[in-house]
Computed example of a mutant assay.
Amino acid sequence: MKGQEWYQADDVAEEYDDKRFSQGGQLIDRREKEAVLEAIMPVEDRNILEIACGTGRFTVMLAEQGADVVGLDISAAMLQQGRKKAQNADLDGTLEFLRGDAGRLPFPDDHFDTVIAMRFFHLADDPEAFLKEMRRVSRDQIVFDTFNRFSARSVYNWALPMGSRLYSRSEIAILLAKTELTLVDVEDDFIVPYGLYRSIPNGLASPIRKLDTAIGKLPVTDHLASVSYWNTHVR
């Protein structure tokens, strides 16, 4: 995985949410959570694994809504932040955080209803292997997101501390075929890349987001979105 040393640093974990999901980044957080919930609903009583769960943004949200969730991450520091977040949450389901490698998931075959991976595949050095492992432990559904090759994301990708793997739609289609997953739905969003939202106040980000959403609905911009949310089912 790209950037493992950077990602596992204590100071990165402590500042991760503030740097990415404060100010205009709140809009990103809200949209990503909406995408996950729309794909998984109904959430209650569902058995879910999140790989690369980070600080538990999605794991805590899903457990609050009644799911039984396991969050797995390589970073002990990130998991510690997730546990702190869970202590202040009102959980209707169960939640467990485990340290582990997404390439060798410590679970038997078909163990979970749903496996999700958000903000993960842009760091994957072997996406097919990771997706196969997710497929192995899921008996029903896999939800993930990707950053897209033909988008504004590519413009500033070089400036990121560890870069990003960008995908075309044809690459994802090939990955799904190789891992025997059926595409149920895909949602494309954010003509304006994430980096801009994170760097400006929420009051300024909101009107930009409205314009971004309106432009994104035009047919001519279908393939310019910087991120895609993929909902797939196991064959």
Rank of each mutant, 00 (worst) to 15 (best):
162 M>E: 13
92 D>S: 15
136 R>H: 06
123 L>A: 08
100 G>P: 03
234 V>C: 11
86 A>N: 09
89 A>M: 04
133 E>N: 07
64 E>S: 09
53 C>I: 00
94 T>Y: 04
52 A>N: 09
16 Y>S: 00
79 L>D: 05
4 Q>V: 01
101 D>V: 01
159 A>L: 11
198 R>T: 13
128 E>A: 12
195 G>E: 10
194 Y>M: 10
87 Q>E: 15
1 M>K: 05
161 P>Y: 01
144 F>K: 04
207 P>T: 00
235 R>G: 14
65 Q>V: 00
211 L>W: 15
183 L>Y: 08
109 D>S: 15
72 L>I: 06
126 D>I: 00
189 D>Y: 04
24 G>M: 01
193 P>C: 03
97 F>L: 01
48 I>L: 08
20 R>F: 08
89 A>Q: 12
133 E>Y: 04
229 Y>R: 03
75 S>I: 00
83 R>P: 11
65 Q>G: 07
123 L>S: 11
145 D>K: 03
50 E>F: 05
149 R>G: 00
79 L>E: 06
97 F>C: 01
156 Y>R: 11
171 E>R: 03
25 G>V: 01
193 P>H: 04
115 V>W: 08
55 T>D: 06
28 I>D: 08
115 V>E: 09
10 D>E: 15
199 S>N: 14
212 D>N: 07
92 D>P: 03
21 F>H: 14
218 L>F: 08
48 I>R: 07
107 F>Y: 15
63 A>H: 13
105 L>D: 07
67 A>C: 13
22 S>H: 10
228 S>H: 07
142 I>P: 06
144 F>M: 05
52 A>H: 02
24 G>V: 01
88 N>G: 07
7 Y>T: 03
226 S>D: 02
53 C>R: 02
132 K>A: 09
100 G>Y: 03
68 D>F: 04
13 A>H: 02
